[in-house]
Simulated scan of single mutants.
Amino acid sequence: MIIEFESEVWQWGARDDSSWFFATVPPELSEDIREIPRMPRGFGSVRVRARIGGSEWTTSIFPDKGSGTYALPLKKAVRDAEGLEKGASTLVRLEVLDG
């Protein structure tokens, strides 16, 4: 399954020095991902290949129980390469590898 969506970059935690940044998979696409049959993984994570701009990497998305969506972690190397900062809007391409 391959999906594309636009998301705002957000920073986890109340501290401005937090280095954890994410993009949120929209609710309807998160629901589609949840419906894919697969073996359970730690924390409900799902393995994906992500692409933003010219950067591509393999990682996992993690469920946010409160919103019902998945969060894609954005590592510093990707944020730097693509010029992403908190609040920036970005186009994300995900290929779900589990399932």
Rank of each mutant, 00 (worst) to 15 (best):
I52D: 01
E95D: 10
V92S: 04
D16H: 10
V25W: 01
I36T: 02
I36W: 09
R34M: 06
P37L: 13
L84T: 04
P73A: 15
R93G: 04
L91N: 04
E6Y: 05
S89D: 13
F62I: 14
D32V: 15
G68K: 00
W20H: 13
G99K: 03
R49Q: 15
D64A: 14
S89C: 09
E6F: 07
G53Y: 01
R51W: 04
P40H: 11
E35R: 15
E28M: 03
I3D: 02
G42T: 13
F62C: 10
V9A: 10
P63K: 11
W10Q: 09
L29H: 00
I2S: 11
M1Y: 10
A81C: 03
R93P: 00
W12T: 11
G53W: 01
S18L: 10
K75P: 09
F5E: 01
R34Q: 05
A88W: 02
I3P: 01
D16C: 10
G53T: 03
P40E: 13
T24K: 08
G42P: 11
P63A: 11
V46E: 12
R15P: 07
V78S: 06
G53V: 01
T58R: 12
G99R: 04
E56F: 06
E85M: 15
P37T: 10
R47D: 08
S45L: 13
S60H: 03
R51L: 00
D64G: 08
G68T: 01
M39G: 12
M39C: 01
S89I: 14
V46P: 10
W12Y: 14
R47A: 10
L84Q: 06
S18D: 09
V48N: 00
G83P: 00
G44A: 05
D64Q: 10
S19K: 14
